[in-house]
């Protein structure tokens, strides 16, 4: 997934300024621009499409009302912080009632570049993705958040520090622990062993 890190900054600041003045059209444009990353963050954090939808809507609602408090800096980080808090609230609410169908992960689908003509492989990839998501959900929420922000949303350490309101050192160690724990969980899944086989004919990305 390509990094969502470089929307054109100049028009965005104009959009944000207009939205702060109460322009509904400007806010709608921001929603359109960020609904996918916000929804993806929520889904990866919560694992349930309906909960993720509710958290997404809640996040944009809160963002609209908090626009007066936005003081500049990366807007995406500011918005994702609100989204992360909405996810935490959803997780806290979930603790008070029996977990809904966490096994249902209907979103796992194959991205365009990876579509293989072999239907079996498609199903396999989908199962792998569902497994990875399940392992993600087994991480403690703090670690899950930084892993999702870094490796799924493509945020820099600095941006993650803004989202989590933590110093860089904390981001670094939390990400290290989260990735290591996820690695151990993935390695415990026999179906995912292909992930850890070193292919001979293709070089691993740096």
């Amino acid at each position: 997934m390509e990094s969502q890190g470089d929307p054109v900054e100049a028009p965005e600041s104009a959009l944000v300024a207009a939205a702060r003045q109460g322009e509904a059209a400007a806010f709608s444009a921001l929603v359109a621009r960020y609904q996918t990353p916000v929804y993806n963050l929520a889904y990866r954090m919560l694992g349930d499409p309906d909960e993720a939808a509710d958290a997404t809507q809640e996040a944009f609602l809160r963002a609209y009302q908090a626009l007066g408090q936005y003081r500049g800096g990366p807007f995406r980080a500011w918005l994702l912080r609100i989204a992360a808090n909405a996810c935490y609230d959803s997780l806290r609410r979930r603790q008070r009632r029996p977990t809904a169908s966490l096994d249902r992960l209907p979103h796992e689908q194959v991205a365009g570049a990876q579509v293989s003509p072999d239907p079996e492989e498609v199903v396999l990839q989908r199962e792998h993705q569902a497994l990875i998501q399940r392992c993600l959900l087994a991480l403690p929420p703090d670690q899950r958040l930084v892993v999702v922000l870094a490796d799924i949303q493509g945020l820099s350490y600095e941006e993650i520090a803004v989202v989590t309101r933590s110093p860089l050192g904390t981001v670094r160690s939390r990400l290290s622990r989260g990735r290591a724990r996820l690695r151990d969980l993935l390695r415990a899944q026999p179906e995912l062993s292909p992930l850890f086989q070193r292919p001979k004919d293709r070089s691993l990305p740096p």
């Binding site: 991205a111 993705q129 990875i132 490796d151 799924i152 992930l195 691993l204």
Partner: peptide, 10 residues
């Protein structure tokens, strides 16, 4: 990290 990056955008 590679596996995470390969997850599709929903």
């Amino acid at each position: 990290v590679t596996a995470l990056r390969a997850l599709p955008t929903i």
